[in-house]
Design a protein around this nucleic acid. Sequence first.
DNA 1: GAAATCGTTCAAAGCGCTTTGGTAAAAATA
DNA 2: TATTTTTACCAAAGCGCTTTGAACGATTTC
Lengths: 339, 339
Amino acid sequence: MNLKELAKHLNLSPTTVSRALNGYPEVGEATRKRVDEEARRFGYRPNTHARRLATGRAHAIGYVLPADKSLMIDPLFSDFVAGATDVYAAHGFDVMLHAGGQEDESSVYQRYSQGGSVDGVVVLGPRLGDPRIELLNGLHMPYVVHGRVGGLTSDFAWLDIDNYGAFYRATKLLIDLGHRRIGLINGLEDFNYAHDRRCGYEKALQDRGLNADPLFTSSGLMTEENGYRQTKRILQLANPPTALILGSMLLVAGAMRAANEMGLLIGRDVSLIAHDDGLPFLNAQSLVPSLTTTSSSIRAAGERVAQLMLGIITDPEVELPHELWSVDLIVRGSTGPAL
Amino acid sequence: MNLKELAKHLNLSPTTVSRALNGYPEVGEATRKRVDEEARRFGYRPNTHARRLATGRAHAIGYVLPADKSLMIDPLFSDFVAGATDVYAAHGFDVMLHAGGQEDESSVYQRYSQGGSVDGVVVLGPRLGDPRIELLNGLHMPYVVHGRVGGLTSDFAWLDIDNYGAFYRATKLLIDLGHRRIGLINGLEDFNYAHDRRCGYEKALQDRGLNADPLFTSSGLMTEENGYRQTKRILQLANPPTALILGSMLLVAGAMRAANEMGLLIGRDVSLIAHDDGLPFLNAQSLVPSLTTTSSSIRAAGERVAQLMLGIITDPEVELPHELWSVDLIVRGSTGPAL
DNA sequence: GAAATCGTTCAAAGCGCTTTGGTAAAAATA
DNA sequence: TATTTTTACCAAAGCGCTTTGAACGATTTC
């Protein structure tokens, strides 16, 4: 059933039916009602592609995961995009996904742009000086960055959590508890978020006249295995840290394994603070001891990014949004006074 | 730059240019080359929606995550779809994602179908007697199921791993090692895969004249927390199992925590076998002791499902594929003889 | 009562592509 | 050489929608 058929059935022109369905004012109330009812009765839906061709708007947003992450698709992504789905659906937008793969990420953007497949893209996992920004600027493709990109002058829309502040405060808390040697098991530091976290960590130490021992820190994949390895390495040093800050709950899983293996009691022998993205399968609160965290829901961020995205493409004249979310520092059982 | 402009620039008709670019034979070799070169030079890409409208094919596949999973978006999904991306990209197909959300899953399918948004959908996480099958049959929408659906008579395309066989063999291995009391911490058993796994487990016990103590088993969410809770509950029973079989690596994380807390050494005091989907962030081999697993790459499955999907929509007359993948049982350090 | 305004409706053009049904020139066949 | 076939190309229709511009009767204004 298409527009023409529906119109014929109603003894109306396609014009009027289209207008009635799309809520234009120049349609009589009685007619509108009749059209709505019959459309529903026949389960009529306008053909997506015809509408898109006619309006010139794709009604779709692209999510492209970087190619070099393909070896390790971010487990956060599912949650990030899940938050967005409802926002998009409510506005008749679809999500177009390109998850890693061989194809160069920039070529995907180019394809999207020239083919008109999407009205905008969400940039995930930005790195320091990320080239995607300039590329997208050049393509005149609207985009929102989840995170920020340090060292770039151009303006762009972003939503980020206060990674710097979160890790500053986490470090400060540990210092206040008497810890003087504090380790950091970070994500890969060419990612902007991990870079910011290290800066916060170092600044807090510095503010108290401490300095970060390079041996106490690491930058690597956020896997259980790496969490285990780094924790073990760091805690086996001659004069090891009494506290560790970790970039994700997955690292925590490995850290706990390492601590157990070494016979160290978390919260007493070694304090732990981790960043918690609110992943549903790894709950910080239910661990024993429950975990002190810097918490921020990746799902909520995904939802908000979707809203910003829609805002930008609805009104391209509007000022580009910048949102910095503060991060909760939730003190639980894994942090205690230094021995 | 669109077709018409490109054609004018080349002093050719849009027809010829279109044919040249799409590899039709009725174009001279010299002309084809000239067209290809200029198209590349201008970075010309046909407008997606125009092409889709003209051909009637969406060149897109839908991935819809069940609404009731929205509370817990499957962490496996990212990997599943990552495997598919290249396959689709190579054939000019896009992935349309609808991850959970408010909207009823069946209404999403209906929308996809009537709007012509996708050429087919992949059905994820099928349940016993899953209603989606009949719905999609009714919509005449091509689909491939990842998994199977027990208790259904109608034929449909699927790819599944041999969950029954995997858990049968895992259980048998433990019995052969002398274990007589074996626990099962399963996924939610209204999912078909979890149901099959329990059947394999029970059959193996039964074949050796043992029977499954209901207290030794559980069916629940595959989270770290649930793994911890169930392991603790089961191992604290009066006459507890000497071995456990677990549905996922996430459950293992919790199980290890519980075992450590209870002072039990895995592989000696209690044997563990888990199913490993090959998630990159949780490595069975690198655990201590390394974990005995039933292994099957979810990523490879995602890739193959994509191929099957393309096969079906390319040639709708072809017989519906059914693929049952055998599962590797990899014996590592977490299984030992019963005490 | 004539002119202007308003509320509804429609015919037709256009979005950018593919595809059908040609045609003219070149090559093969008779 | 005349005829058929092949090759290489094109004009125009059509995919299903939105949107422009016009039409027409009903209502309001002067």
